[in-house]
Computed example of a mutant assay.
Amino acid sequence: MSDADILISLAPRHAKNIFSGLKKVELRRKAMHITSGTKAWIYVTLPVGAIVGHVEINAIHALSPPVLWRRFGSVSGLSKSEFFSYFDGVLKGTALELGKTTELSNRLSLKELRLISEKFQPPQFFCRLHEDSLILKAANANSKNNSLKPR
């Protein structure tokens, strides 16, 4: 496991629910091999197409979908049918318990990300952002140089 920050891609609806506090877990069909305390930068898919902020991962739970639903269904941002449709065919899913969120006032657009790193592609699952990553440096600089909306 690495202590690197990570970048995850989310649909606009899910990102909005995280930053509003309605969604308190991020669900994944596969294990992510990260540790508690990892900072997850959030790239929102098109039509937004930008890194919009970050969230701290407080805990990682790898459990069967029925147990995940019992523990986290009410804070998943999904209906029961959406939840079980997402986990269809999976014996063990992952719930990332989310902590403090910080929304950037000036987002890093896909165009800007590709100027920073020519081959940038939003991750399908997630990617690690090691300290020498140009994307991470730009995101951190954006965090420090712009007013933030912490939650």
Results as ranks from 00 to 15, higher is better:
Ser143Gln: 10
Gln124Glu: 04
Pro122Ile: 03
Ile135Ser: 00
Asn140His: 01
Ala141His: 12
His130Leu: 05
Leu113Gln: 01
Phe126Gln: 03
Ser133Thr: 07
Arg114Cys: 06
Phe125Ser: 15
Glu118His: 15
Leu134Asp: 15
Ser133Ala: 12
Phe125Val: 12
Arg114Asn: 10
Leu115Ile: 12
Gln121Glu: 11
Ser117Pro: 00
Ser133Gly: 13
Phe120His: 06
Lys119Gly: 14
Pro122Leu: 02
Ser143Tyr: 06
Gln121Pro: 02
Lys119Cys: 11
Phe120Asn: 06
Ala138Met: 05
Pro123Gln: 11
Leu113Trp: 02
Cys127Tyr: 01
Asp132Leu: 10
Gln124Leu: 01
Ser117Cys: 06
Glu118Met: 13
Glu118Asp: 10
Ala139Thr: 02
Ile116His: 14
Cys127Leu: 12
Ile135Arg: 07
Ala138Arg: 08
Ala138Pro: 07
Phe125Ile: 13
Cys127His: 00
Leu113Glu: 00
Glu112Trp: 09
Ile135Trp: 01
Cys127Lys: 06
Cys127Trp: 02
Ala139Phe: 00
Ala139Ile: 02
His130Met: 09
Leu134Asn: 15
Ser133Cys: 15
Phe126Gly: 01
Phe126Asn: 02
Lys137Trp: 07
Leu136Phe: 04
Arg128Ala: 09
Ile116Glu: 06
Gln121Tyr: 10
Phe126Cys: 03
Ser117Asn: 11
Arg128Asn: 07
Ala139Pro: 00
Pro123Asp: 08
Pro122Trp: 02
Gln124Thr: 07
Ala139Tyr: 00
Glu118Val: 08
Leu113Ser: 07
Leu129Ala: 04
Pro123Lys: 08
Asn140Met: 03
Leu136Val: 05
